[in-house]
Structure formats: structure tokens, C-alpha cells
């Protein structure tokens, strides 16, 4: 990298908004890359996305759904690297395709949880008063709920399926984001630049969504990354109980469950998908820890 570009990126006194944004992204990326745990996390998460997208290519021509009852519960071999399950399906292929279910759940939960949390939190923090009191009481109530149990009850009532699992998880996850967004908003709202925007006559909504929400995003993203592991584990737990993705869709939790009865003899059936869950949530945890170090120097 040329010296001038380096100094332009690392400048403490950016000349334009663009330079400031690009510079801060550059610094964040740099510190993630120089933080070994975060880097491992980033690699794992990237691999997960890669697996989801290229599952058809990576599964060596094995279909995740093709049954072969003659070759059921086969041990790992050259044909089936991770062996086959109780219906003779290739476990490698199913594990690779299973990444899609995990990615879908993670993406859907984020898409639901972040906007709700941000809206509730910033509105409560900015408006204060009774709005704040009411919203925070509601948040506290949801925060005190047992997540898995409630997700269970929901999934039971709505019927098993990936969408219902997502709704159930989202319902118990948003309060944490509302809390974070609220406390960030309270500090930002009193700063001089917000006061000057107010004096310029900007509407409350404009202030909230153009000025405050963007500033809350980094904390929310850090929290989301740290939460991902929990979300994946809850989803897998629901899958394990039969309340997540329905057969024959490959889903890691359900795959572990199908290997349960044969764990003592055909250990690979349950071990491989479980390992996948473990590695992926470890990846998110490592990345989240690293991001927290980058964005929140206090916790270092």
C-alpha cells in the first residue's frame, strides 16, 4: 500500500465525510485482522456463508435428500466422507445444505430484531418521560422471559417450522437491543451536534433515523454478533426437539436428533452436525468478542 493512501486512511482529521467513513471502516477491518481470535471468527463465519452458497458444488455430487436404504448408517468412507444417516443420505451433503437453514434463521432473526429493538430503544431514549417508562417496562417484561421455554410454547402453538422458530426466537431477543439503543441514545441525545440539528428545525423522526440510529448501529452490531451463537443454539435446540425445520429439509439440530438413538454404535450421525453447530457458534462468539474489543476499548 502506498504511503499516502495509508495516511489518508488513518488520518485523525478527515477532510470529508467519505474519508471519515472509509477511514473508520479501514481501521476496524485492520484491527479485526490483527486480532487473532476475531480473525478466526471471521474466517469461520465466511466459511459458513461460503458453504451455504456453494453447497451443491461442495457435496461431491451427493444429494442431501437422496435416500439409499441399502447403504444406511454407513461409516465414513471415500464415497461418503462423513458416512450416511438412517435413511442412507450423505451426511456431508446434508451438513453443507444445513448451513442454509442456519443462515436463513440468523438472517431472519436479525432482520426482525434489529429494527424493532432500535425503534423501541431510540424512541424511548430520545423522548424520555412516560413513553420511556412504558416502553422500558415492556422491555423488562420480555427480558425476564425464559427464552427457550417461550420459544417452545410458541412453536408448539403455531406448529413446528422454521418460520415459527424464527418468530419465537425474535420475540425473546429484541429487548436486549432496545436496552442498548436506549442507553446509546441517551448519551447521544444530549450532545451538542444533536442540539444544533434540533435548532435547525429537523423533525424528531429525522433526528432519530438520520442522526441517532446510525450512531447506535455499531453497538447493536457487536451485540448481534455476540447473540448469534445463542440464536443458533436455540434454533438448533428447537430443531433437535423437532420444532424447527421439518424433514426432509436438512437442519443441524434435527440431524443430531436423528443420530440420537444410534449414538452408541453409529456415532458419526449425531457427531458431525453437532460439530458444525459448535464450530459455527464458536465462530460467531470469537468474532463478536473481537468486534467488542475493536468498538469498545473499555472492555479490553
Amino acid at each position: 500500500m502506498s504511503d499516502t493512501l495509508g495516511t489518508w486512511l488513518m488520518s485523525e482529521t478527515p477532510m470529508s465525510r467519505r474519508q471519515a467513513v472509509i477511514g473508520s471502516v479501514y481501521r476496524a477491518v485492520r484491527s479485526i485482522i490483527f486480532n487473532p481470535t476475531a480473525l478466526i471468527g471471521l474466517i469461520i463465519v465466511t466459511l459458513l456463508i461460503f458453504m451455504g452458497i456453494f453447497a451443491p458444488l461442495l457435496s461431491l455430487g451427493n444429494s442431501p435428500l437422496a435416500q439409499n436404504l441399502a447403504g444406511r448408517l454407513a461409516a465414513p468412507s471415500a464415497d461418503h466422507w462423513f458416512g450416511t444417516d438412517e435413511l442412507g443420505r450423505d451426511i456431508l451433503a446434508r451438513t453443507l445444505y444445513g448451513a442454509r437453514a442456519t443462515l436463513a434463521i440468523v438472517a431472519l432473526v436479525s432482520v426482525i430484531v434489529v429494527p424493532i429493538g432500535l425503534t423501541v430503544g431510540t424512541v424511548a431514549g430520545y423522548l424520555g418521560g412516560w413513553v420511556d417508562a412504558v416502553l422500558m417496562r415492556i422491555t423488562d417484561i420480555f427480558l425476564a422471559f425464559p427464552r427457550l421455554i417461550l420459544a417452545l410454547a410458541f412453536a408448539a402453538a403455531l406448529g413446528p417450522g422454521i418460520e415459527n422458530a424464527v418468530i419465537a426466537i425474535a420475540l425473546t431477543s429484541w429487548p436486549a437491543y432496545a436496552r442498548i439503543a436506549r442507553s446509546e441514545t441517551m448519551t447521544i441525545a444530549h450532545s451538542d451536534f444533536i442540539q444544533s440539528v434540533v435548532l435547525q428545525g429537523a423533525s424528531t423522526w429525522r433526528i432519530l433515523f438520520r442522526h441517532i440510529v446510525p450512531l447506535c448501529l455499531s453497538s447493536v452490531i457487536v451485540r448481534l454478533t455476540l447473540d448469534m451463537a445463542g440464536i443458533i443454539l436455540t434454533a438448533a435446540g428447537l430443531g433437535f426437539l423437532g420444532l424447527g425445520a421439518q424433514p426432509p429439509t436438512p437442519e443441524w439440530g434435527a440431524m443430531v436428533s436423528s443420530g440420537r438413538d444410534v449414538i452408541l454404535d453409529q456415532w458419526w450421525v449425531a457427531t458431525i452436525p453437532g460439530l458444525a453447530i459448535f464450530i459455527v457458534s464458536l465462530g460467531f462468539n470469537l468474532l463478536g468478542d473481537g468486534l467488542r474489543d475493536v468498538f469498545d476499548p473499555k472492555s479490553r
Binding site: 443454539l233 439440530g253 453437532g274 459448535f278 457458534s281 464458536l282
Partner: peptide
Amino acid sequence: GLFGYSVPVFWLGLIGLF
């Protein structure tokens, strides 16, 4: 600790039994 945060409990149980 990180392992504890990341491992699915039901799977760890199965592996433990195994």
C-alpha cells in the same frame, strides 16, 4: 468458557453418553 458458550448442550450430552 468460549467452548461452553458455543457448544450445543443436547449434543454435548449425547457425546458425553457415548
